[in-house]
Design a protein around this nucleic acid. Structure first.
Lengths: 211, 211
DNA sequence: GCGTAACCTTACGGGCGAGTAGGTATGCTC
DNA sequence: GAGCATACCTACTCGCCCGTAAGGTTACGC
């Protein structure tokens, strides 16, 4: 009515981030398919054609979300776990960064791990990221073993790393659903399971399948 | 034309199972949304209205799949892990049953854990099942500890159980994608991580967060 | 052999939401 | 203050797919 120039014009880079914020939020709440481009646009305080103009089709938009959140997470972890630290310290800092990220970006986590996993077009992208994580963890374990003068079979290392990453994801999932939970404490618990368990195992101990 | 009585009329119970088989297969391949009722019907060798007549709407159909596969899995595990066995043997048999199931029902697993997790209407159902699993595992750990005259905090037990279940799911996921992998071997590896790691931890050992 | 119930089909309605056409306004440069 | 690029909008098309209406056919009881 009275002009209503309340909504300012903003440069592209800013709008793009707003759109991504909104997209992550809506994708996380509704799921990939149930999320409508209209709702995302509305939530971003913009109209639909702008979204198409800047970020492209719905699939491309989701990939963009995936990329941003995934990169953020990987950077948080890699930045914390400097390679020149002792292995246990690296693992500990990595875990703390990981759970810290999840605690602070629950929406992003939900998009990454609850949505992307189910939809074929994106599952590959996610699998790649997880593979990198597994490699990092396997590297830490390997490093720790060599420091003690031991070695382990490649496959075993990778499988153990896989299990550890899976356990972390599971706890992260739990964390994302419990706003009152403390990321730091969760990280500590995971660290205990990981370090003591994997250490024991790779040190040579074995549970015997035959009775 | 020439009669074509190739397709026989079948009693309801049989058709329902065929439909569920087809549904699980298609849901697993395409994902919940991308799966079309037409494709499911065609795959079941029947026409669409029959599916609606017998199993109801798409959502109800998916719930039916979830229920069948979930029940099968829980029965496989519960049946193997008899409560009167020693704790480590219970855990071992449970894990073997679990990975055996996943190896034999990769489609069902994909439906259960890759699809249901992402879609709000079904996430709750799945969470309930996982919670039951966590309780079972926590019970095993508790039992094992008491047998050694120890005890552990309730929360710690549950969190550790959660991590173990998560690790198992992760390995199961990996198994589902690797047809050549051996379920038995995977179970053995998981058993090693679980028993040695959790045992160590709950026995009182701790990794110290402060340096 | 005739009713009736269960099995099964073809063919359509209708909604929802992805993506677009075409036009308006705002700021920036000279 | 003319010209131009960029930010932004309203309002539409159109295809896909869930769900159903209405009718055909086989088996079985009596």
């Amino acid at each position: 009515m009275s002009g209503t120039p309340t909504f300012k014009r903003l440069p592209r880079a800013v709008r793009e981030q707003q759109m991504l914020d909104a997209a992550v939020k809506v994708f996380s709440r509704r799921g990939y398919h149930a999320a409508s481009m209209d709702e995302i646009a509305e939530d971003a305080g913009i109209s639909k054609p702008m979204v198409y103009a800047y970020l492209g089709t719905k699939e491309e938009l989701f990939v963009a979300c995936l990329h941003r959140e995934g990169t953020r997470m990987m950077q948080a972890i890699a930045g914390a776990a400097a390679p020149d630290l002792p292995a246990d310290e690296r693992l500990w800092r990595g875990l703390r960064a990981f759970f810290g990220f999840v605690g602070a970006h629950r929406d992003g986590w939900a998009v990454l791990y609850r949505q992307a996993r189910g939809e074929q077009p994106f599952a590959g992208e996610l699998a790649g990221m997880r593979a990198r994580l597994v490699d990092i963890v396997a590297g830490m374990l390997d490093h720790a073993l060599r420091a003690e003068g031991r070695g382990a079979g490649e496959t075993d290392l990778e499988v153990v790393a896989y299990a550890l990453v899976g356990a972390s994801e599971s706890l992260a999932d739990w964390l994302a659903d419990h706003p009152e939970a403390d990321p730091e404490k969760t990280a500590t618990r995971m660290m205990n399971v990981a370090w003591l368990g994997a250490g024991q195992l790779l040190a040579g101990a074995t549970w015997r399948p035959g009775r």
